[in-house]
Simulated scan of single mutants.
Amino acid sequence: MSLQTTCYNILTASSDAREHKAMSKVFDWVLILLVLINVAAMMLETVPQVANVWSYELHLIEIVSVILFTIEYALRVYSSAAAPVHGNTELVHKSVWKRRWQYMKSPMAIIDLMAILPFYLSVFIAFDLRILRVFRVLRILKIGRYSRSMQTLVTVIRNESHSLLAAISVLLLFTVIAATCIYYIEHHAQPEVFSSIPASLWWALVTLTTVGYGDAVPVTALGKIFGGFITIMGICFYALPAGILSSSYTSQMQLKRDRFKDTVRTALDDGMLSAHDMHHIERVRELLDLDEEEAHLIMRLLQHHHKVAENTGSDEPHSNHHAP
């Protein structure tokens, strides 16, 4: 096995190479720990008492983190050429560097690059790039690579993007309508608070979301009635995106359970589960991010149904044989 393929199997936890499974898990946990330490250090840098005392140590953590993240990014780009194509004929005919460029344009690769780019820009470019340091917080998004729950959420958002866009469009439209109405209702009573429709958008937003900071409130009777109506409507309208996401997330989890059941049923076709079958089932469970206890319960239920079906099938010929 080539170095390129070995790096790919370790970095991506590829199921094609079981001998690298343990090493891949260790690598994942080290990277997760490094990300958490780095984000914690970034946050502590903003505390003056801590920054003054531990400035050298915090800067050292930053340098070490960037070096390790740079090595990780370089290895991921290098090994991306070894990724399986799964029947993608276009990718098969692409050169090694074209495959790597295809990977570099992926969302996770861009996040990896943005996590280290501000450091190098601040070193090699001689002007104030402090605003780019905000991108350091993107390092926490690297954990999404190792969290299948977050990957499921991203899949849900991608699948429901059209529905979410429609719901957000309705919310924005209703927010503008609410801001316009409250402006004409309250402007004469509070010209400094509701000075314009854009200024009234803040009141509409915090009222529709039922946050209600209290910095802008209606004082007229009609304004209070309208404000109460907007608050009630906000509960209804802002529940739309949450309902869409929760429904789709539940569907995704049910789809994972169904795929796990199909895997177990296929393994039970010969009437028993071998060590190879158990290893394959466990691997599928990990990939689907199913709870271990729930997966074992599904396996026991399917094994029970399989035994009942076998016994029922074997009893039928026996009873027919003794039939008069």
Rank of each mutant, 00 (worst) to 15 (best):
Y8M: 03
I10L: 07
I10V: 13
L11N: 11
T12A: 03
S15T: 05
A17R: 12
R18I: 03
E19A: 13
M23W: 06
M23E: 10
S24H: 04
K25V: 12
V26M: 01
V26T: 01
F27L: 01
A40V: 10
L44G: 07
E45R: 15
Q49I: 03
N52C: 05
S55K: 12
S55H: 12
Y56E: 07
L58D: 13
S65H: 08
F69I: 11
F69Y: 09
Y73T: 06
A74T: 12
L75R: 01
V77Y: 03
A82D: 04
T89I: 09
E90L: 15
V92Q: 15
H93T: 06
K98N: 15
R100G: 10
Y103S: 02
M108G: 11
D112T: 14
L113I: 07
A115D: 02
F119Q: 00
L121V: 03
S122A: 11
F124Y: 13
F124N: 01
F124E: 03
F127N: 07
D128Q: 04
R130S: 05
I131V: 12
L132Q: 13
R133K: 13
V134L: 12
R139H: 05
R139D: 03
I140R: 04
R145A: 14
R145W: 14
R148Q: 08
R148E: 10
Q151A: 06
L153E: 06
R158K: 04
R158Q: 12
E160Q: 15
E160K: 15
L165C: 10
V170T: 14
T175S: 06
V176R: 08
E186P: 09
H187A: 03
H188I: 11
Q190P: 09
P191Y: 01
E192H: 15
S196R: 04
A199G: 14
S200T: 06
S200M: 14
V206R: 02
G212D: 05
D215W: 15
D215H: 12
V217L: 05
V219S: 13
V219N: 06
V219P: 09
K224A: 13
I225K: 06
G228N: 05
F229Y: 10
M233P: 14
M233S: 14
G234P: 06
I235E: 05
Y238F: 10
A242K: 08
S247K: 04
Y249M: 11
Q254M: 13
L255H: 05
K256G: 00
R259Q: 14
K261D: 02
D262I: 02
V264H: 01
D269Y: 00
D270C: 08
G271R: 04
A275Y: 11
M278L: 13
V284K: 13
R285K: 12
E294N: 08
A295P: 02
M299E: 05
R300Q: 06
R300P: 00
L301D: 11
V308F: 15
A309E: 15
G313P: 00
S314K: 08
D315R: 11
D315T: 07
P317H: 02
H321M: 10
